[in-house]
Design a protein around this nucleic acid. Structure first.
Length: 584
RNA sequence: GUCCCCGUAGCUCAGAUGGAUAGAGCACAGGAUUCCUAAUCCUGGGGCCGGCAGUUCGAAUCUGCCCGGGGACACCA
């Protein structure tokens, strides 16, 4: 449990005690009380808004409550100072042993530091990527891929039981296009010369699929009617494309637990079952929709449709479940898919989608609310575009000619770690610039480098300690026993407190589904470390290996080992490797 | 026309679910080197948080109406 959580509990206890004494009314809600680092470190170590939150329900002045709480909190031996400030903030200063204990636990737990059980093993389903299996992954997919993956990592870290899921859109019209394109490549493999008409996929990646089919089936499908070969082409092509996609994902360090096929949903009867479910709740009817305002599609016709009452659950219009030819819409299948997740035990679901799907969110949420009688919880995260730049100039991409930038191109050029980290350097709702020149630059303009460099510096010092400070141990077990009271420099104490913030940050990021907070925090940690480092360049006696006294050196090594633990722990959540050295 | 995102320093962006004097990086001006080297650090200037109302002890954060930028709007996936 983080220091902050610990004191949240202490404050709740103090509130209960005051209630028992009749100073405060009984049964006050303490859930809005937060304990956080104060804006200005000179105020103290911890700040809480407790008195202000309780003022209204208790019918008392904030300062009055604050004074009462302070009196209670001062009795805690760990609290060395407690006072009231501003409109009613309570600022606490903690004994240094509290922070020392936290540092020891960081050293001992290393990459597992920050793991908590707050998720209590509750299942969470994170669906991400879900790119159409019609070709290799496009660079546009990688932001959502990283976002979803890191979200899954974070949730696992704080104790949820996470399932990473990929929804294979293998049932729609684009799969038929893929199958026809594959058939052409198949004929090409049999010796025909082909031209690829407009509307089919021109990419070379279908060539091996055609060749494999020619080898396996011979000329069997060459002159057969389309209806005969279509299923075989579909199956082979989808399998091959999914293999490509899995490879692409692996290059990004991503592995899903479940690949869920939309086609299976159609074949299993799950869609009518889901609709029947909604029908029982009186949420299905036949009606006609208003034509869309604005640009009206050319082929718009007014006709009665099978509709889901999405408006009862916050959507703008009711949504059709069947197309004009009687088959189910994509949304109908998606309803069945989310119902399936819920029936598999996932009351918590997260979908990561592209920003162009933003208009889709309300209806899926409506469907989940309807299907689960509002028991299921779906969070949909959308992520905006990634603008590729090369030294400031936009990279031209033309989908039509097939020369788009693939995810693999980018990963091969700059590396998995850079891609993953940079994708999280901005909150997902805003567009992100990805400049090849900048992200591989070795300067503090490049946050990946900056954080990696901090870790490398620490590792370097620890390696060097063997020769420069023989007799001082550098293994975690020994460092955890160091006399941390020897850390007397204010910057050292400050860094120790930053280390202790990691569990709180990890938890906050996980519960709010905001991975970018971790990237920003790691940058701050690195920054504090680099600053301390430079204390040593100006005053050699402040160097980690320059204290003179072996006990001092040991304490300093313990401190940076703790910093390394936070960096390793945080980078592990981001799926980025902490590096040992960066020379060269 | 409706809906969804975005608008914070010259530029690129954080801002923890309503808190204290709004923060970083880049750029600009000055200074400090070699425990991973100036690959880093320190100091400094720089803001009507798009605008106007409202909610309350308190708003960059919540509500409403505007302005500007992006995206989506039966049947595609």
């Amino acid at each position: 449990m983080s220091v902050f959580r610990t004191f949240e509990a202490e404050i709740a206890k103090a509130v209960a005690a005051l209630a028992a004494e009749g100073v405060l009314p009984a049964g006050l809600d303490t859930k809005n009380i937060v304990v956080e680092p104060p804006r200005d470190p000179s105020y103290g170590d911890l700040a809480t808004n407790a008195a202000m939150v309780l003022a209204k329900p208790a019918g008392k002045k904030p300062r009055e409550i604050a004074d009462a709480l302070v009196a209670k909190l001062k009795k805690d031996a760990r609290v060395t100072a407690a006072d009231v400030a501003g409109p009613g903030f309570i600022n606490l200063r903690l004994d240094s042993t509290v922070w020392q204990a936290e540092l020891r636990s960081a050293i001992q737990q290393h990459a597992r530091y920050g793991d908590t059980t707050i998720g209590a093993g509750a299942p969470v389903n994170v669906e991400y990527v879900s790119a159409n299996p019609t070709g290799p992954m496009h660079v546009g997919h990688c932001r959502g891929a990283v976002l979803g993956d890191v979200m899954a990592n974070m949730l696992a870290k704080v104790g949820f039981k996470v399932s990473r899921e990929y929804y294979i859109n293998d049932a729609g019209g684009q799969i038929e296009v893929l199958a026809r394109s594959t058939h052409l490549r198949y004929r090409e493999a049999l010796g025909e010369s082909i031209t690829i008409p407009e509307g089919l996929y021109p990419g070379d990646y279908l060539k091996p699929v055609g060749e494999a089919l020619a080898k396996r089936d011979g000329a069997k499908w060459r002159d057969a009617p389309e209806a005969d070969w279509l299923p075989a082409m579909k199956a082979a092509a989808v399998d091959a494309m999914m293999a490509l996609i899995r490879d692409d994902l692996a290059a990004l360090g991503i592995r899903h637990d479940v690949f869920f096929s939309e086609r299976m949903l159609h074949q299993s009867g799950a869609i009518p079952a889901a609709i029947a479910d909604l029908e029982k709740k009186g949420l299905i009817y036949v009606g006609t929709l208003e034509p869309p305002k604005g640009q009206k599609p050319d082929d718009w016709e007014e006709r009665p449709q099978t509709l889901f009452r999405a408006t009862q659950f916050g959507d703008d219009v009711d949504r059709p479940l069947k197309k004009s030819d009687g088959s189910f819409t994509y949304f109908a299948a998606d309803i069945a898919y989310h119902r399936d997740k819920y029936l598999r035990g996932f009351a918590r679901m997260i979908d990561v989608l592209g920003a162009d799907h933003a208009g889709y969110i309300k209806r899926v949420k409506a469907a989940v609310a309807a299907l689960t009688d509002r028991q299921g919880e779906l969070d949909v995260k959308t992520c905006n575009l990634v603008k590729l730049l090369r030294a400031g100039e936009p990279v031209k991409m033309s989908k039509r000619s097939g020369d788009f930038v693939t995810l693999r191109d980018v990963v091969d050029e700059v590396g998995k770690d850079v891609v993953r980290f940079i994708m999280l350097t901005q909150k997902p709702e805003s567009a992100l610039d990805f400049d090849f020149a900048k992200v591989t630059e070795q300067s503090k303009d490049n946050p990946v480098f900056y954080v990696q460099y901090a870790h490398a510096r620490i590792r370097s010092v620890l390696r060097r300690a063997a020769t420069e400070a023989p007799g001082v141990p550098t293994d975690a077990a020994a460092l955890a026993q160091a006399d941390l009271a020897r850390l007397t420099h204010p910057a050292q104490a400050a860094l120790m407190k930053i280390v202790a913030q990691w569990p709180r940050v990890a938890e906050g990021a996980a519960l709010s589904h905001e991975p970018h907070r971790i990237a920003y925090f790691l940058y701050d940690v690195a920054s504090a470390f680099h600053a301390l480092w430079n204390q040593g360049t100006e005053a050699p006696e402040h160097r980690f290996l320059g204290g003179g006294d072996p006990e001092i050196t040991k304490a300093r090594l313990a401190l940076i080992q703790g910093v390394a633990a936070v960096l390793a722990s945080g980078l592990a959540v981001l799926g980025v490797e902490p590096v040992e050295e960066m020379r060269g």
